[in-house]
């Protein structure tokens, strides 16, 4: 119990003294996971929408694959991204292993199916007749899709939250492809594990608290945006 108190004290100390290492780690976490979420948003929403709105043979298989992907284990992603990025691997010439870019790639792979799956579910929730109605009003196909996306924006915000929450708290892939390099690819989760291993439990608790606060803050902003829409 005393340890927890010490950790909370340390967290406030590190935050208010703007400890440069902790700030760097926090900003990198935000940066990597933010960009990864952004990328996954583009890919996830577009593919999710296409699958939701079209009919083709084997659609159920595709949908079940996407839904399985929502639970993609980060360590599995980490392993495969590592193998691809090895110097001896197919993308070795890029020299990306143990860089923040590699972490963004891995986290995008993790977040994309999450965003895709929620988008898919959200688009299918919309009343079927809505599409016909929009088209009947003289909209082009593209306008129709855009209107549907806007109509589903509340669950889509939930998709951003789920995707971001998934990657900022993820460790398996980040430590494998990033390497937890001091001042370069060390993020909140990997730093927490390392400090725990070093026996610096107070710093580990402080980092966890910062991570929780950060996740809460981001979700607070998104929830605020989402819930403003409610009363009509």
């Amino acid at each position: 119990m005393e340890l927890l108190f010490e950790g909370i004290k340390k967290a406030f100390y590190l935050l208010f003294t703007l400890d440069s290492e902790v700030m760097g780690i926090t900003l990198l976490s935000l940066n990597v996971s933010g960009i990864a979420t952004f990328i996954s948003l583009f890919i996830g929403v577009s593919i999710g929408t296409v699958v939701a709105l079209s009919k083709f043979p084997g659609r159920k298989i595709v949908v079940s694959l996407i839904n399985t992907g929502m639970g993609l284990p980060p360590v599995v992603v980490g392993l495969f991204v590592t193998i691809f990025l090895w110097r001896s691997g197919p993308f070795g010439f890029l020299g990306l292993l143990y860089t923040p870019t590699a972490m963004i790639i891995a986290q995008s792979v993790i977040a994309t199916p999450i965003v895709m799956g929620i988008t898919l579910a959200a688009m299918q929730q919309l009343p079927k007749k809505l599409r016909l109605q929009i088209l009947a009003l003289g909209a082009t196909r593209l306008q129709m899709v855009w209107t549907l996306i806007k109509e589903a924006r509340l669950p889509l915000l939930a998709a951003i939250m789920a995707g971001f929450g998934g990657v900022i708290s993820e460790i398996g892939a980040s430590i494998m492809v990033g390497g937890n390099i001091k001042g370069y690819s060390r993020v909140l989760t990997t730093a927490t594990v390392m400090e725990t291993g070093k026996g610096n439990f107070d710093i580990a608790i402080a980092l966890s608290i910062i991570l929780l606060a950060l996740a809460y803050l981001i979700n607070l902003i998104l929830t605020y945006v989402q819930q403003r829409e409610r009363p009509r």
Partner: peptide, 11 residues
Amino acid sequence: ALFVVLSIPFP
């Protein structure tokens, strides 16, 4: 919000 996140520069 996205812009703020993305504009934090990499070291």
